[in-house]
């Protein structure tokens, strides 16, 4: 009996589901080479290179970048560059803070007993069991009420007035990232044998040295996967950002959403394709690292 034997039904179903998962993505990529400016209909690929863009009605006949016309167009788009910059700034800042405090609380929850522990543990599940939009409008209300009050009390005006922006987005991102980091690190700590720490202390290391030299290096893979999860959640986030961003803090998902409500050119497809490629490379790199790690352990 071969344990890996699967019925033909399962194989056919799996192939169909994979097709369902990938067909839209393939379509998206194909349309990024669309000759039509409107992107409503596919008018074939942009055929030729030339020293300047040649248009025939709404059709691109040739371009300095040839089939990659829309990618060149994208590269020249300052708004995209700014949105990308914002997205990364928010993701990096929020990930660092969320990882540090999330790891701290994971250690606290796994290793210590203290009064507010049940409350802390329970609050971690809030972002999982409550729809994101409820959190989104909650923080929006908090910020608008708080800022309104502060602006009035301190009589702030002009640029000094507190308003939604990079800071509010970052702070809100940290709020929904922290529970995920904590839960992932906590899961890693559950399998951690305490005798390693006891051995370190037995050999003369104090608490801090034990943490620095033994505990931390051992839970580092867990911390890293928590951080990575947080980072991708931040890059991907739409709802929370949608409610907490302000002028000058547009992120890529918000930017794309804005485009979808106006006239769309294949530039959006080019942007999507670049994005998918970045995701593809990142996930691939991660898999390779994980594979190497698990090989080293076995």
């Amino acid at each position: 009996m071969n344990p890996f034997r699967r019925s033909p039904f399962v194989i056919v179903a799996a192939v169909l589901v994979y097709f369902f998962l990938y067909a839209p993505i393939v379509g998206l990529v194909l349309y990024s080479f669309n000759a039509s400016r409107a992107n409503v209909t596919f008018e074939g690929f942009i055929p030729a290179f030339s020293d300047r863009v040649v248009m025939d009605g709404s059709l691109v006949k040739s371009s300095p970048c040839g089939p990659f016309h829309w990618y060149c167009d994208l590269a020249k788009n300052g708004d995209v560059a700014e949105a990308a910059g914002n997205t990364l700034t928010i993701a990096f800042t929020a990930t660092i803070i969320a990882t540090v405090i999330g790891t701290m609380s994971a250690i606290a929850l796994q290793r210590y007993d203290f009064k507010i522990k049940p409350f802390s543990q329970l609050s971690l599940y809030i972002p999982i069991v409550i729809p994101e939009i409820v959190m989104g409008i909650g923080v929006l209300t908090l910020f608008s009420q708080l800022f309104g009050w502060v602006n009035e009390v301190f009589n702030l005006s002009g640029d000094a007035r507190l308003s939604l922006g990079m800071a509010t987005v970052t702070v809100s991102h940290i709020a929904f990232m922290v529970p995920f980091v904590t839960l992932v690190v906590q899961a890693r700590l559950q399998g951690f044998d305490k005798s390693y720490e006891e051995a370190a202390m037995d050999l003369g290391a104090n608490e801090w040295t034990t943490f620095r030299r033994v505990t931390f290096p051992m839970i580092l893979p867990g911390v890293m996967s928590g951080a990575l999860l947080a980072f991708t959640l931040s890059l991907d986030d739409f709802v929370i950002t949608f409610f907490t961003n302000g002028p000058g803090s547009t992120t890529l998902p918000i930017y794309v959403y804005g485009l979808l409500r106006r006239i769309i050119t294949p530039q959006v497809n080019a942007l999507s394709t670049v994005w998918i490629l970045v995701v593809f490379t990142a996930v691939l790199a991660l898999q390779i690292i994980q594979n190497r790690e698990s090989k080293q352990h076995s």
């Binding site: 405090i101 609380s105 606290a108 929850l109 210590y112 522990k117 809030i126 209300t141 908090l142 529970p179």
Partner: peptide, 25 residues
């Protein structure tokens, strides 16, 4: 207990201000 509270404090604080207070509001 004091160590545990201290370690969990930033997260608890953050979640309190950005999850619980907003829900209450």
């Amino acid at each position: 207990a004091a160590q545990g509270t201290l370690l969990a404090l930033p997260t608890t604080f953050w979640l309190f201000f950005l999850l619980i207070i907003p829900l209450f509001l």
